[in-house]
Computed example of a mutant assay.
Amino acid sequence: MSGERDLKKLVGGMSPELHPGSWVFATVPDGRLPEGATPVVTVAEPEGLTLVVRQEEADAAGLAYSYVAGWITLRVHSALDAVGLTAAVAQELATAGLSCNVVSGFHHDHLFVPFNRASLAVALLEDLAARAADHG
């Protein structure tokens, strides 16, 4: 099944969902996953393997990190070649002074925002979705 491409439908139907817990970005230079670490995202870079893991897992594995995030999934099935969803979300959050790290999966987009402001991010995105749906 292909994903949605229409920007108004994407924004209006994004249904942001905040996952429980706190998440961190860590890196392992040798590319080996530490025992007990179950990443939800990995990115291979020349400097090492970036992992996004639960903060508790990073602490238990002795992984260094500096950014603690909340994880939000946009529940709309966006097409990988859809245009504008990331920009609309990033603009909304940037206006409120919130950083946002976006990772796209096959079905959904995932946002990592400052942990202590994750609930605000969800509220802002829900408001954006409601505005888009009203003008659809």
Rank of each mutant, 00 (worst) to 15 (best):
T86S: 15
G62L: 11
R131T: 09
G105W: 11
I72R: 01
S99T: 15
V68W: 10
G3M: 11
E126T: 14
E45K: 13
G97W: 10
E92K: 09
V89D: 00
E56M: 03
M1I: 11
A26E: 02
D6Y: 10
L120R: 10
E126S: 09
P114H: 05
L98S: 12
N116I: 03
A129K: 02
I72E: 00
V28D: 05
Q55E: 15
A37E: 05
F112M: 12
A130F: 04
D6S: 06
H77C: 06
A60M: 09
T38K: 15
V103E: 01
A121Q: 03
L85W: 01
G31L: 11
V41P: 01
L74V: 08
G12R: 09
L33S: 08
A69W: 00
L49V: 08
V28K: 00
P34V: 07
G97C: 11
A121K: 01
M1P: 08
S22Y: 04
E35C: 02
W71D: 00
V89F: 01
D59V: 11
V53P: 00
D134S: 13
A26H: 03
L128K: 07
V40K: 02
H110C: 12
P39E: 06
V41G: 02
S66C: 04
W71S: 01
M14H: 10
P29G: 03
L63N: 04
E35G: 02
L10S: 02
Y65K: 02
H107G: 05
Y67F: 15
H110M: 11
A69Y: 01
I72Y: 01
A121I: 03
L33V: 12
D59W: 04
H135L: 11
L93K: 00
A90W: 06
A44W: 04
D6K: 08
E4V: 15
V41I: 13
V52L: 00
L120F: 04
A90C: 11
I72Q: 01
V113W: 03
G3N: 11
L120Q: 15
G70E: 00
Q55P: 02
V122R: 05
R5A: 05
A61Q: 08
D81A: 09
N101H: 14
S2E: 12
R32I: 07
K9E: 12
V28W: 05
A64T: 13
H107L: 13
P39L: 07
R5P: 09
S99N: 14
E57Y: 02
S66R: 13
P16K: 04
V40P: 01
D81N: 10
V28Y: 06
Q55I: 08
Y67D: 04
D109F: 06
V40M: 09
L49A: 06
D6N: 14
L93A: 03
G13L: 13
Q91K: 11
Y67A: 08
E56L: 03
S2M: 10
A26I: 05
M1D: 12
V28E: 06
V40Q: 07
W23C: 03
M14R: 06
Q91E: 15
V41C: 12
G136R: 10
F115R: 15
H135R: 14
G3C: 12
W71L: 07
V24G: 00
